[in-house]
Amino acid sequence: MRPVSAAETAPTLVPWLVRAESLRVRAGKHLAVDGLDLTLDTGVHGLLGPNGAGKTTLMRALATVVKPAGGTLTLLGASVDGRADLREVRRGLGYLPQQFGFYPRFTVREFVEYMAWLKEMPKAAIPDAVQRSIDRVGLTAKADAKMKTLSGGMLRRAGIAQAIVNEPQLLLLDEPTVGLDPEQRLDFRDLLRDLGRDSCVLVSTHLVEDVVAACTDVILMNEGRLLFQGSPDDLVARGGPNDAGDSPAERGYSALLRQHRSNA
């Protein structure tokens, strides 16, 4: 027997957990993502942009809900362009859409268990994983309450729990803070920072301050294209005292949009 080198036993490294090149994605007949180039790695990435910028369509493409209309898309090291079987990629994903469906008579625990089963998690691992995800979103006391009895904010937290139950490498959260009160939003920021240590987390939101507080990276889209990608400090530096906004980050956001529109 020959000795096995460390290089042979080391895990395979993926250069980028998300890589899109000239990506085009349609929402119905509308080309909502148009020639997007984007790379994402481990960390928390905030996705900003006005209504109609293409954020939700991009999230749906990254979640493999819709197929790209053009360009290339690689997720977790695997190309998804034209692939018929995406089960292996989907096992490494977590996704919270803007509106998610659930059975009203399910308890929170049953709902998260069902989603864990759909994600093809090992049966023996599901109970502990479900309890852990429920605890992380602060729904421990409501674990056995029926989904139909939850408030809007609690429903959103149940949605986050199902998205993280499989400890995904790529976590996609579309407007996750809708319905959360200020205290819950602060807790959610802490959860994001924790998740971003080992995973690639993409959070779409209109709340610029949440992005600055919790994200390591900021992405700004408009009209299906990438306008900006950089750190929260880079975003703040783009704004000036005469730009619209109640905070330095909001002024940086509005300055970038104004500059783009003036050049269009």
Rank of each mutant, 00 (worst) to 15 (best):
V80E: 03
V65G: 04
R91V: 03
G43A: 10
V65P: 03
L86P: 05
L73C: 08
D85R: 12
V112H: 02
T57H: 01
T74E: 12
L38V: 10
P97V: 05
G94I: 01
L58W: 00
L86F: 00
G43Q: 07
V44Y: 08
R109L: 04
A84G: 06
G54S: 06
F111M: 13
V66R: 01
T72P: 00
V108M: 07
G82Q: 02
Q99W: 09
F102M: 15
L96W: 02
F106W: 09
F102G: 03
L96M: 03
T56V: 00
M59V: 13
P50N: 14
R83C: 01
R90E: 04
L76C: 14
Q99G: 08
L58S: 00
G82H: 08
R105G: 14
L38I: 12
F111Q: 02
T57N: 02
A61G: 01
Q99K: 14
L76S: 11
L58N: 01
R91Q: 14
P68S: 04
E110V: 06
T42M: 06
F100M: 09
P104K: 11
G54V: 08
R91L: 07
R105H: 15
T39M: 10
R83P: 00
V112A: 10
G71A: 05
V65L: 14
T57W: 04
R87M: 08
R87G: 09
T74C: 06
R109D: 11
Q99E: 09
T74H: 13
G70L: 04
Y95G: 01
G46E: 12
L38W: 09
G82I: 10
A69M: 02
V80Y: 10
G101L: 12
A84N: 09
T42D: 09
L96E: 02
V112R: 01
G92I: 00
A61S: 08
E88V: 07
L76I: 14
D81A: 13
A61Q: 04
D85T: 07
R109Y: 10
R105Q: 15
R90S: 03
T72E: 14
V44G: 08
